[in-house]
Computed example of a mutant assay.
Amino acid sequence: MLKKRWMVGLLAGCLAAGGFSYNALAKENNEHTQTASSKTSALTEQEAESIAKTVVDGTVEDIDRDIYNGKEAYEVEIEKDGEDYDVYVDINTRQALNDPLQEKAEQVAITKEEAEEIALKQTSGTVIESKLDEDDGTYIYEIEIQTKQGDESEFDISAKDGRIIKQEIDD
Rank of each mutant, 00 (worst) to 15 (best):
V89R: 02
Y88F: 15
Y74D: 02
K104D: 04
D66V: 06
E152A: 09
R5D: 09
G150D: 04
G162L: 10
G70P: 04
I63L: 08
L120R: 08
I78D: 02
K80T: 02
I165M: 11
A48I: 02
T40M: 11
N92Y: 11
E77H: 04
E154N: 12
N69D: 14
S130E: 03
S124E: 15
E113P: 05
L25N: 09
G137I: 12
D151T: 14
E45V: 09
V56E: 03
I140D: 05
D161N: 14
I91C: 12
E77W: 02
S124M: 10
F20M: 10
A52N: 07
K27D: 01
L120G: 09
E47I: 06
A159R: 01
D151M: 11
M1A: 13
Q167P: 06
E134C: 13
Q46C: 01
Q146V: 11
V127H: 14
D136C: 08
T59K: 15
I118P: 01
L10T: 12
A48W: 00
G137W: 07
E129M: 10
I143A: 01
I78S: 03
I140S: 07
K148Y: 13
D64W: 07
E117K: 15
W6C: 09
Q146F: 03
N92M: 09
E49R: 01
D64R: 13
Q122N: 07
K27H: 02
A105Q: 15
C14A: 06
K53F: 05
D81W: 03
I51F: 01
D156V: 04
G150A: 04
E114T: 06
H32E: 11
L11D: 06
A16F: 05
P100E: 10
I110D: 06
R65D: 07
Q146W: 03
G150C: 04
D64S: 12
G82H: 09
S153W: 07
N98V: 05
D84S: 12
A24P: 06
I78A: 00
D135G: 05
A12H: 07
D84G: 06
S37T: 02
G58A: 11
D151C: 05
K148A: 14
T93R: 15
T111C: 01
A36T: 00
G70H: 03
D62V: 10
Q46E: 15
G137Q: 11
I165G: 00
E117R: 12
V55R: 00
G58D: 12
A16N: 07
Q149S: 11
